[in-house]
Design a protein around this nucleic acid. Structure first.
Lengths: 212, 212
DNA sequence: CCATAAAATTATACTCAGTATACTATTTAC
DNA sequence: GTAAATAGTATACTGAGTATAATTTTATGG
């Protein structure tokens, strides 16, 4: 025990990364559904079982950073000014996302290809939807916690659902804009414009609640 | 050929219905993931292949009425007064849903059990999410068609996403209310209250578009 | 009513994701 | 250097879904 950066830990991380890298490359190249886990294992020079040791489901080989958005959300709320309305905090967070060109607000050929690969695979699309729902649940808890509620209530769930839906639509339209105009700047504007419109509506939905 | 209500067609329909019925019963009883397609086939006294002939995916055995909401949507828009804002049409549709106690606004022990079975199965939950997204796409086309656009635009997609999200949240809260209070009437009120709040916000989001 | 075409159903064999488990090799701790 | 812990492997299984050929059932024209 007690080994942080020990050989074992480093090897594990290297193995995991190697598998994930080789898998992502294969998936982007040939499509998720046209590459079997056995092929990934072979390409990574590891047994099939080892792949499943690190990645319980095949989809996890492609979506390997689910934690990040979760962390960012909590960090954003941890730093927020006392008394600020949770929805206002979220609005600021979205702008900082766009400013720092976070993956959730990034429009490049690489992100376009990534999401095209997702769209072309039923399994990856399903996993993306699942992650969306998990984000809603998470956001609902964070919102409730921000106003000192122990549990998410109906208002928190409505707010969270609406914000995540807005993000999804805004991001999708940003990607569409990127495809049409090939400009990261106008894509970003599209994204932010839709988010602003959405927030104004969400504020109305929540006007008699502590969230807005 | 040329046989509408012929023996063959009736037998097919009977077979399909028998499979679906026996499957639904087994799933509600023992959980979707604890019943294999082979068991369904055996219980329905039919071969495994026949099950897959009628229902391409196992999930289709449980969700057997996807078309309905689609039809209802189009019917509602077909009958709408000329010049009415599409969002207003939708708002009326939701109220008529609640009045006619349509499955989408029905809160009983049976619907509760149905959705509990869904929630307990990852595969069924995934399919439910997929259907939600398909409904969004469908609604976006219907909205665009209502204002004589050939293709759904960004506003239509935002509107559709928001309305479907509202429905999902409102229905989920209605079910929660049913579980807590066991009253179809208060569940219905909860459902409608959330829909009304949502529509007021959605109207703001779409205020400079032809949809609101 | 019979022969035959068409369509429903079945048998069989396959691929692939995911799980369980026992076994081997490597690293760590003492 | 040895023993315990753990990373990795081999093997065998279940269950969904697909492809295909064989077989049964129904429809139809004479």
């Amino acid at each position: 025990m007690s080994n942080q950066g020990g050989l074992r830990e480093r090897k594990k991380e290297a193995t995991r990364q190697a598998i994930s890298d080789v898998a992502t490359e294969l998936f982007l190249e040939r499509g998720f559904d046209n590459v079997s886990v056995a092929e990934v294992a072979e390409a990574a020079e590891v047994s099939r079982m080892t792949v499943f040791n690190y990645f319980p489901r095949k989809e996890d080989l492609f979506f390997d950073r689910e934690e990040e958005s979760r962390q960012m959300l909590r960090a954003g709320f941890a730093e927020r000014p006392a008394g600020e309305a949770p929805i206002a905090t979220l609005r600021k967070l979205v702008h900082s996302l766009a400013d720092r060109v976070h993956p959730f607000a990034k429009f490049t050929d690489a992100t376009a290809k990534f999401w095209r690969t997702v769209a072309e695979s039923p399994a990856l699309s399903a996993r993306a939807r699942e992650m969306r729902d998990e984000l809603v649940d998470d956001l609902a808890s964070v919102l409730a916690a921000a106003i000192k509620r122990p549990l998410a209530d109906a208002d928190a769930r409505l707010a969270a659902s609406m914000v995540v839906t807005a993000l999804t639509v805004a991001y999708a339209e940003g990607l569409r804009e990127h495809k049409a105009r090939r400009s990261a700047a106008t894509s970003r504007e599209t994204f932010l414009r839709i988010m602003e419109r959405s927030f104004s509506g969400i504020a109305i939905m929540l006007k008699d609640t502590p969230y807005a």
